[in-house]
Design a binder for these strands. Structure first.
Lengths: 347, 347
DNA sequence: CTGAAAGCGCTTACAG
DNA sequence: CTGAAAGCGCTTACAG
């Protein structure tokens, strides 16, 4: 490793101690303006940047936050989602001069879960966890340990956890009602997400609430999917093969909607003429399919930004206990439901 | 911060010094098997994980590698690309017990570039840089500084840099030739990427080489794009408005191809009937459009994995100077060119 | 063979 | 007011 510039180097050049140089750089008042400026100039000239390790050790603080991605969700969520989350985290972390560590947690069964490794090694001062399965024991342990954690999403089973999410139930209910009210659809199908994740349960509940209220539940069908494009295709194929009749499909995400629409088209079923389709997420895919998908826009980046802000509060001790923050979502109306050109229905 | 378990805690429980405990955990031979096991058991029981800061300070090594994303390329590359890169990096980093830091480098004009901050603060032992502009002075400085850096992509202007890339020229030439040879297209258009990036130049060169060799350069048109979906749309719209005639378009990426196809469809031009279209990247988008896009599959994850392996070689000093590694690419034949069902043409 | 010091780079509490 | 020690957690080179 190339020898790097330390505080001592800066101090020596100015003829003060490292301690004084440290204070000078931090603007401590006991250092005269003259030496303060001299030290800062020297630091600039030498290209001094504080050692993160030295600082972390002394301050008992890593100056970094981590994004932890449970194994289970590797296939579960599309890549785009994580990019939005990373972008949001980076934005917040930059504002706090902190680094972002990504722990895509390969395969760790027994032993300390990757969640905890990051924390116990103090590489990060806190972690953002997203899309963990409901019964993820490691999550529970981590939250119980008292280490700073903020979840993205809703976790009713972890009431002690700070979290930032959206109202999946209400959103799915609204978009389902759009099919019923605006398009007169009555024979509705819901293709669920993974049901070991809270979003899967919530979106299904929202769908069921809508059909119940509108009295069209007798014809409603629920098919289990896994959020993958193929599972959307499989679900529709199974329905068609079984001779089921339906005029609207509420997919728990856009990926499945894409797969489902592909099968419908191949079967000669017109979307949205014969069957209205809606999705969920709007992470990029929904806009580029043909027809473009009417969907619920999940503000992933903003969720991540807020979650990270909250995490810093926790780390700094500037906060008052865990709270759940809920963000509004909007429905982005495109073509797959039968509406005209794209527009957005605000919350 | 919750008080964490240190080596001293482990040592005390067993009744040895921290130094001995350290050696025991690392399996140093001077520690007897009995105490070695006792220490390890104690470490397990207490949930001891070494402090990354302590270790980094002592070892003069962060145990982390960073992914640096220049500002300039925020819009330039789609999100998917970065996820592939991150996945590849994580894989390699895990194998070396290293963390991955993401430096999405907000806005830093003067002063030390984010590139260098990460390195000088020794938060990371080396960095992977992807998609830097050709004339990025900070890149040059970083490479010149001798700090471990590996580029993803080709950088002929930085011969001293280790890098992992693909042959953009050959790949674009091949896919252009596919339009000429397999589909008899003669009036070809190329919509370029950003020309301040090497891939932009290389893909254009590949296109030009193909039309030259096949004697169809008289009708060839080159339009400058910026890799964004809209710029693909704009390029085609301009061509149509100008009354240009063409029967094949080689887009420098799939995003632009998507935008271009949208405009063609809106103008009533059949793809691939009247105009064949091909893209580049295959990061996910090309598969879901209608028609699906025939494209060059860029092995981004594998490039990142190899680049990271190379980076560790550099960090460890296990390597012999900078080298450029080139990965093979394949052409994924789908519908937009006029071919039948999807298949892949290997390199 | 083993015990314990030294020192990585930093910052703050303490001694003078 | 200012100088310099102490100590964060770790590991290895050194002293005994």
């Amino acid at each position: 490793m190339a020898k790097s510039v330390t505080l001592k180097d800066v101090a020596q050049r100015v003829g003060v101690t490292a301690a004084a140089a440290s204070m000078a750089l931090s603007g401590h008042e006991r250092i005269s303006a003259a030496t303060r400026d001299a030290v800062r100039r020297a630091a600039d000239e030498l290209g001094y940047v504080p050692s993160s390790a030295g600082r972390a050790l002394r301050n008992q603080r890593a100056g970094a936050v981590a994004l932890v991605v449970p194994n289970s969700s590797h296939h579960v969520f599309g890549h785009m989602y994580f990019m939005h989350v990373l972008t949001g985290m980076s934005r917040a972390a930059s504002a706090h001069d902190a680094q972002v560590i990504v722990s895509t947690n390969a395969d760790e069964e027994g032993g300390v879960a990757a969640y905890e490794r990051v924390m116990r090694s103090r590489s990060a001062d806190g972690v953002i966890v997203t899309s963990a399965a409901i019964d993820d024991r490691n999550m529970e342990r981590l939250v119980a340990s008292g280490l700073p954690v903020v979840l993205i999403g809703n976790a009713p089973s972890l009431p002690d956890a700070a979290s930032v999410g959206i109202d999946d139930v209400a959103a799915t209910r609204r978009i389902t009602e759009h099919l019923i009210d605006a398009h007169g659809r009555r024979r509705l199908v819901h293709v669920t997400g993974t049901l070991d994740h809270q979003t899967g349960l919530d979106r299904r509940e929202g769908f069921l609430a809508a059909v119940r209220v509108h009295g069209v539940e007798v014809d409603a069908l629920v098919v289990e999917g896994d959020l993958g494009e193929e599972s959307g295709a499989d679900a529709i194929r199974a329905l068609l093969d079984a001779g089921k009749e339906f005029d609207g499909v509420v997919f728990a995400n856009d990926d499945m909607a894409t797969g489902g629409m592909r099968v419908l088209r191949a079967a000669g079923v017109d979307v949205p003429g014969a069957v209205s389709v809606v999705g969920f997420d709007d992470f990029g895919l929904a806009r580029v399919t043909t027809p473009a998908i009417t969907t619920v826009r999940v503000p992933a980046e903003e969720m991540a930004r807020l979650a990270t802000e909250r995490l810093f509060d926790l780390v700094d001790g500037t906060s008052d206990g865990p709270t759940h923050r809920e963000l509004p979502v909007s429905i982005v109306v495109r073509e797959s439901c039968g509406c005209g050109p794209e527009h957005r229905a605000e919350d």
